[in-house]
Each structure stands twice: as C-alpha cells, then as structure tokens.
C-alpha cells in the first residue's frame, strides 16, 4: 500500500510540473506581455524599460524557473486589472470557493448515494423512475434558474437565508444547494449503475446465501464495490463544479474564485487567469491522487497496480 501511494505521489508530481509548464506558456502565448503591461499608446522605449524591469528579456527557460520559484513562494505576480498582488487576490477568495465546493459535493453525495442505491434495489419500478426524474431535472434545470428560484422562495418570501453576500454560513446554504443539485445527476447515475451491477454479482449472491440481513448485503458487500468509480468521478467532476461555481457565485454575489476567474477572462487579466488555472489544475491533481488512494483502500486489487 505504501509503495502504491509513493508511486502515485511521484506520478502526481510529474503531472503537476507539466501543468506548471502549460500554465506558464499560457501567459506567454497570449501575446507580448510588456506591450500589454505598458498599455495603449506606449512608446517603444517605455515598453523596453518594462521588458527589462520584469525580466522579460531573459531566455524563456530562465523566465520559467524564475516564475516557478516565485510561485513556489506564493508570488503570482501583479494583476493587470486590479493592479494588486495576484496571490492576495486569490487567497482572499479561495476559502469561499472551497467551502462552496465542499458543501456542494457533500450535498451531491448525500443525495446521490442513497437515491442511487434505492433506484438500483427497485430498478424498473416507480421508485426508480421517480429518482431518475429527480436527477434528470437537476441536469436539465440551469443553475441560474434554480438559484433564482431558491432566492425567490427562501430569501425573499420565507426570509430563511440571505439572497447574497459572504457574511456567514447562511450565505452558503442556497448556493451550495444549487450547485450540489447541479452536479448530483452524474453521481446518481453512476451509483445506480454500479449498484445494479454489484447486486447481480456472484459475491452478493454468496452474501445472501450466508443469510446476512438485506441491509448488510446491500451496504457492505454491494455498495463498497459500487463506490469505486464514484470516487474517481469526484476528481473528474471538479471541472463541472468550477464551471457551476462561476455561475452560482455570480448569482449569489459570493466572493469566490469562480467569480474571479470569470472577471479575469472578461478583462484579459492573464496573471490572475494563469494563477487560477494553475491552482485548479493542482487541485485536480491532488483530488485524483486522493481518489486513487481511497480506491486502493476500497478495492485491494488496485493496490498491486
């Protein structure tokens, strides 16, 4: 198991370095940075000065390692648009996005695992169809619509939760429900399919033959095997989660990374975008690593790989 984790860790490091190269190239590929920094109508002389001050006249490889060294120390450069430190900008907002993402994921799993299991046990029945409809609705309903509907009902009419802002945990409830429901369908489908397969396996029949109570057969013997692909999906769903959080954070004026990413794209604020892309990719790498480790714990056959 330890060897397996070390192997995965090494692999994750290689991927992270590759990602950093791409994130670095992203900024260079967007055009001449010195020209962009100097702004419109700058003289060639002032552009040359900027180029020298920011070290943009050095070889690209040198620039990369200088940049990597800066990033490793938490220095992501200056935002073109906000004219402030990118690191400060991001770290002020990343907490909100992490809370939103974590809460949404928790809601999605809390919905999809029991519902998926239920749909699988009663597959083909009315219960199965109702669960499938509920998850289809989550997929079909745009999150801006659900978000606005929730604001109408729970913020304006019932006044249970605030409609916008980032003041306390109450601010996160409606956005997390919106985003959680949005990412539920793929999890639900995977749990359902995995459970239908698992319930038809020989080892579940063996567990039944042993006379174990139904809930032990379902939740111990079948679910453990059905969860392996679900854990893998968590990492993959990060993209959907981030895409969704851009919309959801905008609706609820939640001051997070998704909203910042949206702004940096519209203002061509490349240093911010570069930092966001890098952080997201690293989060992806870390989540993949975690899901590999969790899966190795769930399914011992993977440990040999």
């Amino acid at each position: 198991m330890l060897i397996y984790i070390l192997k995965r860790l090494g692999l994750a490091l290689i991927v992270a370095l590759t990602v950093s190269v791409i994130a670095f190239a992203l900024l260079r590929a967007s055009g001449d940075i010195a020209t962009a920094l100097a702004g419109e109508g700058a003289t060639p002389e002032s552009i040359a000065v900027i180029r020298q001050t920011y070290g943009l006249d050095r070889p690209v490889v040198v620039q990369y390692f200088a940049w990597l060294w800066d990033v490793a120390r938490g220095d992501f450069g200056q935002s073109f648009f906000f004219r402030t430190d990118v690191a400060g900008l991001i770290f002020g907002k990343i907490g909100n996005t992490l809370i939103l993402g974590g809460a949404s994921l928790a809601i999605a799993l809390a919905l999809s695992i029991p519902l998926g299991v239920l749909a699988a046990i009663y597959s083909g029945s009315m219960i199965d169809r109702a669960v499938t409809m509920f998850s289809l609705l989550g997929q079909a309903l745009p999150s801006f619509f659900l978000g606005l509907a929730l604001i109408m009902i729970f913020a304006i009419r019932l006044r249970w939760f605030p409609a916008s802002g980032t003041d306390g945990w109450r601010n996160f409830v409606l956005p997390a429900v919106t985003l959680g429901y949005y990412i539920t369908p793929p999890f639900m489908r995977l749990v359902r399919a995995g459970m239908i397969d698992a319930l038809n396996t020989d080892y579940v029949r063996t567990a039944r033959a042993k006379g174990l109570p139904a809930r032990r057969v379902v939740f111990k013997h079948a679910l453990r095997n059905a969860l392996v692909p679900v854990v893998g999906l968590v990492a993959v769903q990060l993209g959907l989660l981030m895409g969704g959080s851009v919309v959801v954070e905008s609706i609820f004026a939640l001051d997070g990374l998704g909203y910042l990413a949206y702004q940096s794209i519209s203002y061509r604020d490349f240093p911010v975008l570069q930092a966001v892309v890098l952080l997201l990719s690293l989060a992806y790498v870390v989540l993949t690593l975690l899901s590999d480790i969790i899966n190795a714990w769930l399914d011992p056959r993977l440990r040999a790989a």
């Binding site: 020989d202 063996t206 042993k210 095997n225 399914d299």
Partner: peptide, 24 residues
Amino acid sequence: AGKLRGRRMAMIFQEPMTALNPAF
C-alpha cells in the same frame, strides 16, 4: 427461512473466482 439459511443450510457455487467479494 432467514433463520435457517446460512446457518443450518449453506450453499456453494459453480464459480469460485467470482463468488467471493473482492473488497474483503
């Protein structure tokens, strides 16, 4: 049947390769 199955009457199957749970 629930009290007898797996206690006083037991069963083994054709496919030993798949009859045991891989996760335990």
